[in-house]
Nucleic acid binder design. Structure first.
Lengths: 233, 233
DNA sequence: CGCTGTGTTGATCTTCTTCAACCCGCGTGG
DNA sequence: CCACGCGGGTTGAAGAAGATCAACACAGCG
């Protein structure tokens, strides 16, 4: 399995006393329900570039992201790659496993992450007679779908300049502060459907025009108003 | 409600004896389960350009598509529009309603369609104690997600020529025969993230090079091998 | 008959890709 | 310790691809 390579195993998770209990997939569960979890839920730490699972791997578990950031990558007929979604805290990756499908993407870590591994038979059993979990599952599925739609309308439409601006806005708007981590230019390109060179040019241009400022390596402070203007044309 | 405008009401559906019973959302239901459907399931016929629902409308029902084709449209900050998905036979549109969300897209008919309207409280009630329906729901959600991902990797990546070729392949490959209906150039553009002019140019080019042939107005016979070559570059 | 909407085509201009060079920070091996 | 190579980012110049604006063909229809 991919994650065994260099993953730091943190031990069996204590779901009942999980610090994310209210926002995580198991939010709807009652205390008694946790008795039904016979198999241990494992928790991992993952470093950037590590692979959680690969497209085509048999789907034997879903993963809730406790912290950090992963990319879901799909490959094109011509060998190129395209990032179709980002998953971050409280998201669930690998839902397709619940339907017996192999994973549809490579899941690769972008920012140091902590994840819980939920074997599909555990989730399925709980799901069978647990409307709360059920509801949460649908919520995650729908969230993924909304993300995918937004990706298409916001990040795959318009000029390269607009796309980079919208990407930055998306990254910033879920932080409290007007700053965000930006990833490699190659990844930016793969997200927006542009070349790494154009991605680089746009970021450099924004820096020159003081729309963004690199306050630490890979970390940018953003002028949201300017970005909004650029994003809307 | 949008659909009342010109929709042809076909009457209350007889789900138990539905001709699509094995492939439709209610596939998993037992005979006894149908007793729980107190509210009538309505069936509609819709003509091209009719609107099933609009983005922002309160989501009070999901719709199973019996036949025909609809587009799901989302609007951009700058007013432009982007088609994010197609829904066709056995697909379900408006799943977000089950989570109490307003509809996220305009759902507009492309090819004459017949749909069933399933009020969300009916679906929710059946879903509560019915693993079969449950499973089917997840399946639809996942199908929508796969579609969205494919849309991104196949139809929003590469040159305009490749995108048009891939679109044609997608349309053809779910038919038995190597022919398909193509929609207006404007819609093609909105699907692929290109202008109507480029869409027109590509289609015209394919016709000139005998990659496709218009065997009836709007209907094309396709040389799949050639399309595959073009799609892969 | 003229009008309108859709498709097509042409000419021009902008944008993006492509290929290339170069910089810089970093680690490695001589 | 230093030379070297390597990867990531940046920049330049050239060309290709697509957008834009404009014109026109054509069918359907009042």
């Amino acid at each position: 399995m991919s994650i065994t390579s260099k993953a730091a195993w943190r031990g069996e998770a204590d779901c009942l006393n999980c610090s994310l209990r209210t926002s995580v997939l198991f939010a709807g569960l009652e205390e008694k329900d946790f008795d039904q979890i016979h198999r241990p839920i494992e928790e991992f730490n993952l470093a950037p570039h590590q692979v959680l699972y690969r497209a085509g791997d048999p789907g034997d578990a879903v993963y809730t992201i406790r912290s950090g950031l992963l990319k879901l990558v799909q490959y094109l007929p011509d060998g190129g790659q395209r990032i179709v979604r980002l998953v971050h805290s409280t998201d669930v990756a690998g839902l397709e496993a619940l339907l017996g499908q192999p994973y549809q993407h490579d899941a690769v870590v972008l920012q140091p992450a902590s994840v819980c591994r939920l074997p599909i038979d555990v989730v399925k059993r709980l799901d069978r007679d647990n409307p709360g979990l059920h509801q949460e599952l649908m919520r995650r599925w729908q969230r993924a779908l909304s993300e995918a739609d937004a990706w298409l309308t916001q990040l795959s439409t318009g000029t390269a300049r607009q796309r980079v601006a919208r990407l930055l806005l998306r990254l910033v708007e879920r932080n409290g502060e007007p700053a965000c981590e930006l990833f490699s230019r190659e990844d930016v390109g793969a997200m927006l459907g542009i070349t790494t060179e154009t991605a680089s040019r746009m970021v450099a241009e924004f820096k020159r025009k003081n729309v963004i400022a690199e306050i630490a390596p890979g970390r940018f402070r953003c002028d949201i108003k300017s970005l909004r203007t650029i994003a809307a044309d």
